[in-house]
Amino acid sequence: MPEQLIFAMEVTLNGLMTGVMYSLVALGFVLIFKASGIFNYAQGVMALFAAMTLVGIQEGRVPFSHLINAIFGTEIYDFGWDVPALLAILLTVLVMVGFAFFVQKVIFKHLVGQEPIILFMATIGLAYFLEGVADLMWGSEIRTLDVGLPQGINLAIDETTFNWFGYGFFIDNLDIVATIVAAVLVAGLVAFAQYTKQGRAMRAVADDHQAALSVGISLNFVWILVWSLAGFVALVAGIMWGAKSGVQFSLSLIALKALPVLMLGGFTSIPGAIVGGLIIGVGEALFEFSVGPLIGGATENWFAYVLALLFLVFRPQGLFGEKIIERV
């Protein structure tokens, strides 16, 4: 087999894995948009906030310690204990549920019935507010995230592909874990939406919130539920991305990688977020591999958008989005 073809296969596999990482971020956007029609600009910052909270709890750090010390002249930075990873994750989920309550009660409850652009602007404000709170709460330093995820080359794949092609493929163990987590997450979300009372209420609100209201479904409850789920997805994305780079403020920029995925997969489809992520991941990796060296490289960021725009021209609602026909 030609060497370049073998390399292209390795690049494709890695592109698929990277695509799963993009999908993890895109899922949070889809959940909120599907249920409430809100394009949540703050999703990337939610991933940052969730990851920072997780590390803060794990390390036993006192939230808002700089503020407390500045006001009261104290020197308290940590509680002096370490929290096990699983317990810290559970506590972070609780914080994200609390955040969902806050968002619904303080912001979106008062904006019911407003134009989508107003709701979008509110999420921009929320993003900057949350970034500031995260900074005040946990500081700006880079933190190491250690929840026991494996990293580094998968030796089994390396050996197997070496035996087949005479060249061992590199696949990161973290990417394999991310793929399994994404599959479980999507299966869980679909099962929740299909087989639980709360999930059915969520779907009813997504289809027609006025009709859902008329049969006694609490819009308030469903929106809190949806923001909580999006918070949970943000935590998962924050853990996966944070394990690669450490937990730091650039984590919020991962949202930029989710936008082309949403444009391609559609804003209202969970499978669309997955398939869109895979197409973007593979597309940008193969483009960088084949064309990148000829034009100076670093094509991933812009090529993802070119790919999404191409799909958009032929299918504006995205691959799996709902086609909206408005009669006049």
Partner: peptide, 20 residues
């Protein structure tokens, strides 16, 4: 020469090239 776009979270392709 291997360029990495801002902010630099995505370097998978560059390191695959280095490995090759």
């Amino acid at each position: 020469q291997l360029a990495v776009d801002h902010p630099g979270q995505e370097q998978g392709n560059q390191w695959l090239t280095i490995r090759r």
